[in-house]
């Protein structure tokens, strides 16, 4: 079970880092009826509105990457695996709370501009949640105590 646990921890770290490059939340909006949709996308490393990058967009990728490094450390030092999984859960939980409100804010603030707008979580959020499950799975299959 030790190898399975190591593989799961590596997979969780890889999934977490991958998630930072995927959209965490998305808003697709038509700024005028005859225009194509413009995408407002937040990833772990940037926030874009169409072709414009927010110079001060939050770097959510930093705490996610830190948790991923701790997960990898858990392969070598078993006792850190549980704490690393919990840290990733904390990052994911806080990110979920923030994005949930931000998505609602974007919907409410723009619904008058485009009633057909689409706003929601991106694939990055779901991959991050899957990474958290994998990390705890690694701890369950090979507990360190």
């Amino acid at each position: 079970m030790k190898i399975v646990s190591a593989v799961l921890l590596a997979a969780a770290a890889a999934a977490a880092v991958t998630a930072t490059f995927l959209p965490l939340s998305e808003l697709l909006i038509r700024l005028a009826p005859d225009q194509p949709q413009t995408a407002y996308v937040t990833t772990g490393w940037a926030t874009h509105f169409g072709g414009t990058k927010d110079r001060h967009g939050p770097l959510f990728g930093v705490p996610v990457a830190a948790a991923a490094i701790a997960l990898l450390a858990g392969i070598r030092w078993r006792r850190t695996a549980f704490a690393a999984a919990a840290a990733l859960a904390g990052v994911t939980g806080m990110l979920f709370v923030y994005l949930l409100n931000a998505i609602g804010f974007h919907e409410e603030g723009n619904i008058a501009i485009d009633p057909g707008l689409e706003a929601g979580f991106g694939t990055g959020t779901w991959v991050l949640m899957a990474a958290t499950v994998l990390a705890f799975g690694a701890v369950v299959v090979h507990p360190d105590d």
Binding site: P58, L59, F60, V62, P63, A66, A67, F82, A83, A84, A86, A87, L88, A89, G90, V91, T92, G93, M94, L95, Y98
Partner: peptide, 13 residues
Amino acid sequence: AAAQLGAVGVIAA
């Protein structure tokens, strides 16, 4: 404690 540390990381960002 570890989860809170992770959550505070998001707040820091």
